[in-house]
């Protein structure tokens, strides 16, 4: 049953164990509708595991969570319908054209032919790629691919989009453009859940959480966290937390 209380994601005491190893240790947080929520942490801190549980790729060991108002244990299918996903590995098919990629991803999310056609035109126009309609994805520069991948990830108008280190390996200008796309999406009401390595990107988020050893060590807006940890930037907070949590 769908809950509607202004939150897109609600997580309480979510835990994932692999044998004896606790990858995610009883984390709790909420993400508001239309918010950009940054999920930070070192490699192995558990952020990917947490994200995979929310996307329905992994089943949690214990705890509770709803995504888009749907329970991630019992309503996985509805969860999947209300989310978009873009992984750190790039997720468009290189040997398909732009149009064919949209056709495919639109198709597996159940869009109609007409919707797919409209979306395709819209995207081609937006990125000024109309004359490249028939070219394969492999012929486009990486920055374009990533922007397209993001657009395709939200082609079915999901309520929430999960981005797993989406801007790996692109130049700062393209990264900036990518974030403009993210802002554009949130303006139309999409909630963005993003993991990142780049601390400057964390500043673009409405709120961030920092994970270390499976636990959320800090959560709040970048500004609040900076004053709480008396640091001038997110990078410093991150280092403080990684060293043992001293404020």
């Amino acid at each position: 049953m769908k809950k509607s209380n202004g939150y897109s994601i609600e997580v309480s005491n979510l835990t994932k164990k692999f044998g004896d190893f606790v990858a995610v240790d009883s984390i709790s947080f909420q993400v508001k509708k239309g918010e950009i929520f940054g999920f930070l942490g070192a490699n192995g801190a558990g952020k990917s595991t947490a994200m995979r549980m929310l996307c329905g790729l992994l089943s949690p060991t214990s705890g509770e969570a709803t995504v888009g108002g749907y329970d991630i244990f019992s309503e996985t299918e509805k969860v999947k319908r209300s989310i978009g996903y873009m992984s750190q590995k790039f997720s468009l098919y290189e040997d398909l054209t732009i149009g064919e990629n949209i056709e495919f991803y639109g198709g597996i999310y159940g869009l109609s032919k007409l919707q797919i056609k409209e979306k395709t035109e819209q995207l081609l126009e937006k990125f000024q790629l109309t004359e490249k309609r028939k070219s394969l994805i492999s012929s486009l520069p990486l920055g374009w691919k990533q922007k397209l991948a993001f657009s395709v990830a939200i082609v079915h108008n999901p309520e929430i989009v999960f981005l797993d280190e989406p801007t790996g390996g692109v130049d700062p200008i393209t990264r900036r453009q990518f974030w403009e796309l993210i802002y554009e999406a949130t303006n139309s009401g999409v909630t963005v859940f993003v993991t990142t390595h780049y601390m400057d990107e964390a500043e673009y988020c409405d709120r961030i959480s920092m994970m270390s050893e499976g636990k959320i060590m800090a959560i709040g807006s970048p500004r609040d966290l900076k004053s709480e940890y008396s640091s001038s930037n997110v990078d410093e907070i991150f280092v403080k937390i990684a060293r043992g949590g001293g404020k």
């Binding site: 996903y85 997720s91 990830a153």
Partner: peptide, 13 residues
């Protein structure tokens, strides 16, 4: 290898 499998598994398929 391409990482598209994850996108597929996240989809409603």
């Amino acid at each position: 290898e391409l990482g598209t499998m994850e996108s597929l598994l996240v989809s409603p398929m």
